[in-house]
Design a binder for these strands. Structure first.
Lengths: 227, 227
DNA sequence: TTTACATTGTGGAATAATTCACGTGCTATT
DNA sequence: AATAGCACGTGAATTATTCCACAATGTAAA
């Protein structure tokens, strides 16, 4: 199959498939099928086959996919076959919570440094990490070979923090500050905006019940997993 | 304009516009235009006009949009003109960080209760909140008039927690557990999956540099804000 | 009042994403 | 070895989303 660019929707789904494959492998299940996976996630099976086919022919007709083999392929595709070294900028509540977020260590991400500009916080020890002065970021990033940064500072500081991160040579950033950020094209910025998520719930609550279908429709289990 | 269903992409953008309108209003700016907004977010101006037009004709031709009036309209559309009462299930690191997350209080969301099943945590005081036993959720939700729940428990407990939340009558849930969850159609579930976000960064880092365009292209400022 | 100008609201084109549907190739059984 | 059955891989159809382009409609100035 030929494609110029892989959609982020596709790579997001690969993450989901991968997690499922880990579970199947742990349960000693040897093979699975696009249909089997699709049912778990309430996705279309053709979509799963297509997502995978962008990267190669991993399946066997009449059989499906070998769980361990597919898991290894996706792991490689997503670049999870090597360790990623992460720093967190912002040693507040959110930053410290993220510092020992289980999900990070789960998949080859390791938080190796924290930064802050607040003199009260610099030097503090959080978990097993010392909080560095943000001014030192370039040197620490170089020495520690950090390749991913997390922004966990208030919105009004996020742009300058991002600039410093970019300056330090980091090209992959996960941002929790609810604000638009400017950046060069060679830096990948992923923003997790909790405010938007919350407000989309509020919109749902604001809609008249009829529109939501909660009154008219009979009880029904929905297996939708991706919002 | 006539539409059956508003896309979530549209409502997410409304949140973004709203935040910007708050800033403009704070700066005493009276009017703005779809083009002015579009430039801030690197969006197409027609898209902004269309997003707004789904809900009414808020603009004035030749002038643009009155900042305060548009802000008020969007606030109402998103259901942010009334308080939402939030509970957080899971009093671990993430849950407690979320409990006093500034962004919540920013837009009419108030965290009014926390729950956990761990006897060590029940009864603890976090900020100004006591951690309740999850078993009590139905009665607390009713008494406190809670309408939004946040799931901040490990993935393996998330499904049963969601079931209890749904049972308690809550219909809007923000989920941080990285796992697919089953639910009825009359419940709105929004999942924030940090693992997927991280892995999409890893994919970017894994791609050969040429594909990313970092070598071939001249320096250029990208104003992209939505990933 | 007329004219010049700015910006909306929107039909329709273009692009992107999902789903259908079917030929292909592999396995298993007889 | 032949046949049946299953599930992949993928071109084509459908659906969703974004963007273009322009008539409509407002303001402001002469």
């Amino acid at each position: 199959m030929k494609v110029d660019k892989i959609s982020e929707l596709t790579t997001n789904r690969l993450s989901i498939y991968l997690r499922c494959l880990h579970e199947l492998a742990a349960a000693h299940i040897k093979t699975t099928s696009s249909d089997g996976l699709a049912k778990r996630f309430n996705l279309n099976s053709a979509q799963i086959r297509k997502d995978l086919a962008y990267f190669g022919e991993f399946g066997v007709r009449g059989v499906g996919y070998y769980v361990e083999s597919l898991r290894d392929h996706i792991t490689k595709i997503l670049g999870l076959d090597r360790k990623h070294r992460v720093c967190i900028v912002g040693a507040g509540r959110l930053g410290t919570a993220l510092a020992d977020y289980y999900g990070f260590s789960q998949t080859n991400f390791e938080v190796v440094a924290m930064f802050d500009s607040d003199v009260e916080k610099i030097g503090q020890i959080i978990g097993s990490l010392v909080v560095f002065d943000l001014k030192q970021i370039a040197e620490v990033v170089a020495k520690q070979q950090i390749d991913v940064a997390v922004i966990a500072v208030p919105a009004n500081h996020a742009q300058s923090v991002l600039d410093e991160i970019a300056n330090a040579g980091i090209t992959a950033v996960l941002n929790f500050a609810p604000t638009p950020l400017r950046h060069n094209d060679d830096l990948k910025l992923k923003t997790v905006d909790l405010t938007i998520s919350l407000e989309s719930l509020a919109f749902f609550l604001a809609k008249p019940a009829l529109e939501n279908g909660s009154i008219m429709k009979p009880i029904e289990v929905n297996r939708r997993i991706i919002n």
